[in-house]
């Protein structure tokens, strides 16, 4: 097996054109899959030495996050805390300290587990993804990207995430079987336009409910442009339970998740809105 350790994005994309290679980000899923024989890559392109992929910065109304930024780096970033609270919160509880030191946001998308912790916050915050391949650059909304099968064509590199800074307030909560080292059984990310006590646009993303994390159009429609109060919160809870019930159908976990989601939804709201819905 060939192993490449390019220093630049350009080199990485060039190598990917020549060899049928697999990109290695943090390795917390890939190395395990290699070890168990689930995958047998012909060649590996280790992205770990490309410093431009690790940047977290604010530019022209966007929070830009390089695909190789780790969950630990994101979870310690004041910028992410200020501008993308839902993502920051997800980074606190993902895996363990060791996993957070290795795992990257780009790898989270590339592996695309149904329970991927990073994806619901990115969806709720309206993130775009910059991809790079032999065809050139492409900026696509994460929502659109997640509807593609396969997610990425061969040789396509996830370069960065772009979160538009539209002043959305956001929160996140997940349900695991224990507090640390838990794979999400259910996760909810919410982003809201909030002015005084008036809710503008609402985006609710769910994780571990379908094959991939997704944004609920129904909840966006039902919850946008209203007064923020306890009635609105109850309406949200009723709505999210209905959405989960419909998404899971007769699956074994359905009775549990459709009940549990009400608590997770309330908890996600509680990360940025005080109880009862009155804004500070």
């Amino acid at each position: 097996m060939n192993y490449f350790q390019p220093q630049t994005v350009g080199q990485a994309v060039n190598i990917a054109q020549t060899f049928e290679a697999t990109f290695l980000a943090g390795g917390t899923d890939l190395v395990l899959h290699m070890q168990t024989g689930k995958i047998h890559p012909n060649a590996i392109i280790d992205l770990g030495k490309i410093s431009e992929l690790k940047e977290i910065k604010e530019t022209d109304g966007y929070l830009e996050i390089g695909s190789m930024a780790t969950f630990a780096e994101l979870g310690q970033s004041e910028l992410v805390f200020q501008k993308a609270l839902a993502l920051w919160l997800a980074c606190q509880t993902m895996g363990s300290p060791q996993i957070r030191n290795q795992a990257t946001l780009g790898g989270n998308l590339g592996n695309c587990s149904p329970a991927a912790d990073g994806l619901p916050p990115l969806l709720a915050l309206g993130a775009e993804v910059r991809l790079i391949s032999r065809e050139g650059d492409e900026v696509v909304s994460l929502e659109t990207l997640l509807s593609r099968t396969p997610l990425l064509s061969q040789g396509t590199l996830i370069r960065e995430f772009r979160i538009p800074l539209k002043g959305l307030q956001s929160g996140f909560a997940k349900l695991g079987r224990r507090k640390a080292l838990a794979i999400a059984r259910l996760s909810v990310a919410i982003a809201i336009e909030l002015e005084d006590n008036r809710v503008g646009k609402v985006r609710v993303a769910l994780g571990a409910v379908g094959k991939r994390a997704y944004l609920s159009e129904i909840l966006a429609r039902e919850l946008s442009d209203q007064e923020l109060n306890e009635v609105w919160i109850e309406k949200g809870i009723e709505g999210v339970q209905r959405v989960v019930r419909e998404a899971l159908g007769a699956r074994a976990s359905a009775p549990y998740k459709r009940e549990a989601v009400s608590g997770v939804f309330r908890e996600a709201l509680g990360t940025f809105i005080p109880e009862g819905g009155t804004k500070v």
Binding site: Q5, L24, I99, Q102
Partner: peptide, 24 residues
């Protein structure tokens, strides 16, 4: 990568060495 028994410190960060390829 669940138990941490293989923890080592790489460049000041704890990682699970069972999930690291040697060339990394």
């Amino acid at each position: 990568g669940e138990c941490g028994a293989c923890t080592v410190i790489i460049d000041g960060k704890t990682v699970n060495s069972c999930l690291v390829l040697a060339p990394q």
